[in-house]
Design a protein around this nucleic acid. Structure first.
Lengths: 342, 342
DNA sequence: TCCTCCGCTGTAACCGCTTACATTTATTGT
DNA sequence: ACAATAAATGTAAGCGGTTACAGCGGAGGA
């Protein structure tokens, strides 16, 4: 069932059918109805690829994320996909894992799929070694690249992220003001936003008059158990009265540590985690968490992308240049729950 | 940069270029090298849509899920996408929500994208009213439809799911054997697998010699708080000593109920949840949960799909018919943790 | 009445690839 | 050395749409 079949059945040319399915205004009401009736009768769906070929745009966005089963990224994907679809765009998803070669291969694959733009979700797409980002920088010359919670400085790369530094600074400060004397920061992965968070911790400490060498920062693995063990070992070395965790996952590890050590939350120990994903509420007791405003970040990402891909037209129908901020930073919000005294 | 550019630069015909990029064996080593060199030099990526148009298959699978931010589905998507990509297939994702019209629209959209097959992830694609499934049944006439944890009986629809009935039966039986006298089952959503689970509860009760009218089944909403409140109200009416939850999410609600009522877990109250997603371990105390073997379910889904889409060929290169079981059921496994005494 | 203009419709080229088939070139046997 | 055969390559027709441009008929003005 293709456009020829429809045109034959309706007794019009394929051009007219094309006009009808594209909602062009220069079709008579009579033809439109004739064509629509046939289309409804036969249940015809235009071939998106042929359309894309003819038109030059597939109305498709390539989304890359390291691991869609990560709660945080799963949410991002949901927001992005839904938002894009509302705007008439489809998403091709690639779960790239953490290996650079796989990331590159996925990028190529999405290119071959003629995506109109890329969205790199998560801060795992900023490599330590600048050369390793070259594939993204090159790609951005052809199609816009939106980075969600990551940032690479180059033409065509736009970044929307939450204010991780500010968020962590606030968490630290609040904790300090609520009487915390010994704060430990635990994180589990290095990344662009990971560094921002550490900067935030340092900034918070500075604001509270705590010297650099008195800031305690430890790095663990991703699992709850690992974080709990790490904190236990640290506690052994020197007790602390508050924990800031780089994610809700780590926050839960912190809760497990506290519970297994018979420490009362929040009386003996306070915990603040980050992201405010569903995990924060899933925890018992529920975690005080810095809301990373993921939904807003995703929504701003889509907004910018839509502006970029569908620029306003001047009176002659030519695209007007759009100027978008290369970086957008969304303010976070501390959500108070049961693991803190404030 | 298209195949003509490459053919010109390499001094061969586009057919030869096509053969090279498709790894055909009837190309001389000399031309292959010439072409590959040019491709590498110019960084050419073939247009997947033109290929698909010419070839008739896009090597793309349409995945529908109600909500990719649901932890369970997020995992499914990860497994499916990764597995499909390993097999050279891409995935287009549609998060359809729970509304029938949106589901239908997404189905149409994926059709227009010429997907080679559909995967409907989650048990939310089996509607109560059989007529409402017609769009899937019709779709299955054109392309295979794989249902993950759902089941509709029709030509071209294949179902892979976990043995929810058996899993729940085992949970009930184990609980009973560990001394539970008053078991309550709490669930939060109606669906195909929801019904299976209830059947399992009933089967377990029967096996334990408990009459139908003594089985307590309550339905709540999705949030932790709601489940906790519901259980509190039920407890008020009549105390129970064990909770079976239809998901880890509900299980966490049960934990919250127990904690807020000062009930010790598992001494005063035992809890068994379902899925064994990351949430089960995230909970404090960690949830005993029936592992729904999602990874295995997804892997079997992909396996079957690949067999269907790439059937073995006979000596003349014709596809041999493949016969696949329309239903595959994967055995679950009870994972014991801290919320039960067994 | 004839010409112009306009709205609608149709024709055909093109998007970038695959592939059946024709053609050329290389290999082998006698 | 030459036909027969096999291997490599090229040509051209699709795949299913979009769209520039040409053509057509009818309304309105001179």
């Amino acid at each position: 069932m293709n456009i020829y079949d429809i045109s034959k059945a309706a007794g019009v040319s394929i051009a007219s059918v094309s006009r009808v399915i594209n909602g062009a205004d220069n079709v008579s009401e009579k033809t439109r109805k004739k064509v629509m009736d046939i289309i409804d009768e036969y249940g015809y769906t235009p071939n998106a690829y042929a359309r894309g070929l003819g038109r030059g745009s597939m109305k498709t966005i390539g989304i890359m994320c390291s691991d869609s089963s990560d709660i945080y990224l799963a949410n991002a994907i949901y927001y992005l996909e839904t938002d894009l679809r509302k705007n008439g765009y489809n998403s091709i998803l690639c779960c790239t894992g953490y290996d650079l070669e796989t990331k590159k291969a996925s990028f190529e694959l999405l290119k071959s799929r003629q995506v109109d733009a890329f969205i790199l979700a998560g801060s795992k797409y900023v490599e330590k070694n600048p050369e390793d980002n070259q594939y993204i920088i090159d790609g951005a010359k052809e199609h816009p690249v939106m980075m969600v919670n990551g940032c690479i400085e180059a033409m065509g790369i736009y970044s929307v992220r939450s204010d991780d530094m500010g968020g962590m600074k606030e968490a630290f400060t609040q904790l300090h003001e609520s009487g915390a004397k010994k704060i430990i920061y635990v994180y589990s992965s290095d990344s662009f936003s990971g560094e921002q968070k550490i900067e935030g911790i340092k900034a918070g400490a500075k604001k509270c008059g705590i010297s650099e060498e008195n800031i305690r920062i430890v790095k663990g693995k991703k699992s709850y158990g690992d974080i709990a063990e790490l904190l236990a070992a640290e506690y052994e070395k020197e007790a602390f009265d508050s924990i800031i965790a780089s994610s809700d996952t780590s926050g839960i590890g912190a809760v497990k540590f506290a519970v297994s050590h018979g420490l009362r939350i929040p009386e003996d120990i306070q915990i603040v985690s980050y992201n405010n994903s569903k995990l924060a509420e899933a925890s018992t007791p529920e975690l005080t968490s810095v809301d990373a405003k993921l939904e807003e970040v995703c929504q701003k990402t889509c907004d910018s992308l839509m502006k970029l891909l569908n620029p306003p037209l001047d009176e002659n129908g030519n695209a007007l240049p759009v100027s978008l901020p290369a970086r957008t930073v969304v303010k976070t919000k501390l959500v108070k729950r049961a693991t803190t005294r404030f």
